[in-house]
Simulated assay, not measured.
Amino acid sequence: SLKCLSLGAVDYLAKPESARAPGAANEFRRELVEKMRALSETKARVPRLAATPAPRAVSPIPTAPLRAGGTKPQCLLIGSSTGGPRAVERVLLDLKPALSRIPVLIVQHMPAMFTAVFADHLQTLLSVPAREAKDGDAVATGTILVAPGGRHMGVVCTGGKATIRLNDGPPENFCRPAVDVLFREAAAVYGASALAVVLTGMGSDGTHGARFLTKAGATVIAQDEATSIVWGMPGSIVKAGLAHEVLPLESIGRSLKGLITGAST
């Protein structure tokens, strides 16, 4: 599936298994219909990784004001769904070598069988430690942790250190893992030192959690409509007035690097 995405596929859907619980067929049907509807309502664009095009103009959309001289980011949070794997790759590739300065927590809407492979793929692509998160994992600088499919990933402070907390709570926004869970818990742990990005994806997952982040003084960046496969999740952030910046995909990594290193972009 990841190879198909690299060749131009914009999304994927695991086929239902005969051993799955009753109602699985209805859930599969709902998800398939939603994906088809979302893709039919937008012009799909596949991000290119080979060359870096000239920066696009930022969309003239009202954004939340960035705090001058804000707190240095201590954790990067990324939420994405439809079209997300390629977008995540692009952002992290553009962010190197600043990846060594910050932990990265990713919630990508994926089935359980996909997330470990996706994490391994990121490690190979980026040459930095990346793995599927486990309950109790330390949130370590220079390490990428991907939320496991089928489980919510949050973060708690234990003994003065940030650690991963996984749970099997009910889906939020029909999603498990949900971006809202990560954002909400990270806001309580990191406050203004959290840095969040919401990339392409259908639905509105992440918006509720972004409210906690902005209230805590954290910075939230949303991908723009022109470069999103589906402008659902980032669009919801923007429409709620929670985005401090609305950027094309090819500009997000550079902006994050400037915020993380303190250098002008």
Rank of each mutant, 00 (worst) to 15 (best):
residue 253 G to P: 09
residue 86 R to E: 08
residue 18 S to F: 14
residue 168 D to R: 05
residue 252 I to T: 04
residue 70 G to H: 05
residue 138 A to W: 07
residue 140 A to N: 01
residue 55 P to Q: 05
residue 193 S to G: 12
residue 257 K to S: 11
residue 224 D to T: 06
residue 225 E to P: 07
residue 232 G to R: 03
residue 110 M to R: 00
residue 14 A to H: 13
residue 46 V to I: 07
residue 105 L to E: 03
residue 123 Q to W: 10
residue 236 S to P: 02
residue 22 P to M: 02
residue 44 A to N: 09
residue 19 A to Y: 11
residue 244 H to R: 04
residue 155 V to D: 01
residue 52 T to K: 11
residue 27 E to R: 08
residue 168 D to E: 14
residue 6 S to A: 13
residue 80 S to Y: 02
residue 110 M to T: 00
residue 170 P to V: 04
residue 31 E to R: 15
residue 33 V to Y: 06
residue 10 V to S: 14
residue 191 G to K: 01
residue 17 E to A: 12
residue 152 H to Q: 03
residue 151 R to A: 07
residue 227 T to E: 03
residue 166 L to E: 01
residue 128 V to S: 03
residue 22 P to N: 03
residue 57 A to T: 13
residue 149 G to P: 12
residue 68 A to L: 04
residue 172 E to A: 05
residue 139 V to R: 00
residue 56 R to T: 03
residue 106 I to S: 06
residue 209 G to M: 01
residue 136 G to L: 07
residue 96 K to P: 00
residue 32 L to A: 15
residue 22 P to A: 09
residue 133 A to H: 02
residue 108 Q to G: 14
residue 55 P to G: 06
residue 51 A to E: 09
residue 99 L to C: 05
residue 247 L to D: 05
residue 39 L to I: 01
residue 2 L to G: 15
residue 71 T to K: 12
residue 48 R to E: 04
residue 184 R to D: 10
residue 143 T to N: 00
residue 1 S to C: 09
residue 119 A to K: 09
residue 206 G to M: 10
residue 187 A to F: 00
residue 262 G to K: 11
residue 106 I to N: 02
residue 116 A to Q: 15
residue 36 M to Q: 13
residue 159 G to K: 10
residue 60 P to Q: 10
residue 44 A to C: 13
